[in-house]
Write a protein that binds this DNA or RNA. Structure first.
Lengths: 232, 232
DNA sequence: CGCACGCTTGATGCTGCTCAATTTGTGTGG
DNA sequence: CCACACAAATTGAGCAGCATCAAGCGTGCG
């Protein structure tokens, strides 16, 4: 493992406060692997063998229902995914694939659970991580119940823009079909929605989305603290 | 607190394995209160002051968006709710109200967090609870993305029937509007959906839903392990 | 140059929402 | 016990949102 990667890992909320001994034990058993774009990392229904930590790249969590894929969430570095399946020692509810070349740390689930049972600090932080994951899932659910697909798209764009320091434009790092599956609509409809947002302060340039008038877009999207604010 | 209630509480997964001292400290600061039907227990945006444990009765978690209420989940005894807000020390994402006369144990959030920081067993169990809550939220999300409202209703009926030992019929303990908000549709549409299920092995008798042909209903609903099985 | 792929645009139909009218159910007072 | 009033639930008609199927456009690559 490269030195700066180790630094990144220990900076993760999940690992930051735990006992050195425990951290060593985790990393000792871990594998850091490189995956190209489009690799299926885990499959819905499989048993949780490894806790995954995305060190670099991009991963999507998705589910396939009746031959159609639906995006559950997008994972950015540095963060873990499928922590809940590991902790509860149950099969994955979803599948996951890389959407870019990715470096992923694989920690044997058994080891995670062992340290979880031994290191108080680690158990506490796992609980906090899960609480946050739970809250973000509930927020997504609220968005689905109360919003149209255009509104979900508009708020997604605003949320992405908030992440980047740039704030003015975002570049979607995957194709329209994938974006559609995460917004909860079809490719065709996503296209129409993007066209519609053209009247609300947004310009579409292929995979780049330029926000010309953030206030106008916000007036349309009406973001809400308890749906769209990731820190709440 | 009545003796059998104390027994019920200590039988809760959340409390079962923790140190006696910690449990005593929790219950010592707790208030057991009785609420009639229709009382708002917590409001979206309020700070999490108490961990709630539903000892007896029925509670719904819901959110209000643009003047319309949407049901997030139904809480049956004996279980906790809003654990995530307490653990992460953040405002509630949703509101909650009683749907029946209810007895609720209120434990000061600060106390919960203090013991969470001290008692390993408790921290571990909180993490497991949160993992399960997270997973059930993801399952609900999957249902919303991949299913029509009639299918959600059909699967909800099957899930409720599975809970009751009776298995043959269920009695919805609240009005149609509330049910509609939890299925993710309107009152009017729910009515039509119920009428439609009449052709698929179900009989409607006011608030009672009689399952005449479970196999027929299952053929229509096509329940899936990783959406509808609460133990997965 | 032309084919392939991803994306957009158009036309059509289904699902589900809204508004309004009607029926059913429930509680109250005579 | 009935009559009435009010709320809840159903039913109907019309319309918006969204999916589906099909065709057209654009870009990149062999």
């Amino acid at each position: 493992m490269r030195p700066h990667e180790l630094t990144q890992l220990t900076a993760l909320p999940l690992f930051s406060e735990m006992e050195e001994e425990s951290l060593a034990s985790l990393l000792d058993a871990a594998l850091l692997q490189q995956f190209p774009t489009g690799v299926i990392l885990i499959r819905e229904g499989d048993h949780a063998d490894f806790l995954h930590v995305l060190v670099e790249g991009l991963v999507e969590i998705f589910t396939e229902q009746n031959g159609v894929e639906w995006g559950i969430s997008l994972v950015n570095p540095v963060s873990t995914f499928i922590l809940a399946a590991v902790v509860s020692d149950q099969p994955y509810l979803n599948s996951a694939r890389t959407l870019a070349n990715s470096r992923i740390l694989l920690i044997p689930a058994q080891r995670v659970r062992a340290i979880f049972d031994r290191d108080v600090a680690f158990a506490r932080i796992v609980a906090r991580e899960l609480a946050l994951a739970y809250r973000s899932s509930v927020k997504k659910l609220k968005g689905y119940m109360a919003r149209s697909s255009v509104e979900r798209l508009a708020n997604w764009i605003l949320a992405e823009a908030r992440k980047d320091a740039a704030q003015g434009n975002i570049v979607v790092p995957f194709d329209r079909g994938t974006l559609a599956s995460h917004i909860g609509t079809t490719r065709e409809n996503l296209s129409r929605s993007l066209a519609l947002l053209t009247d609300h302060g947004v310009r579409i340039r292929g995979r780049e989305i330029v926000i010309d008038a953030k206030d106008q877009l916000e007036a349309f999207a009406r973001p809400q603290r308890f749906i769209d604010d990731p820190t709440s």
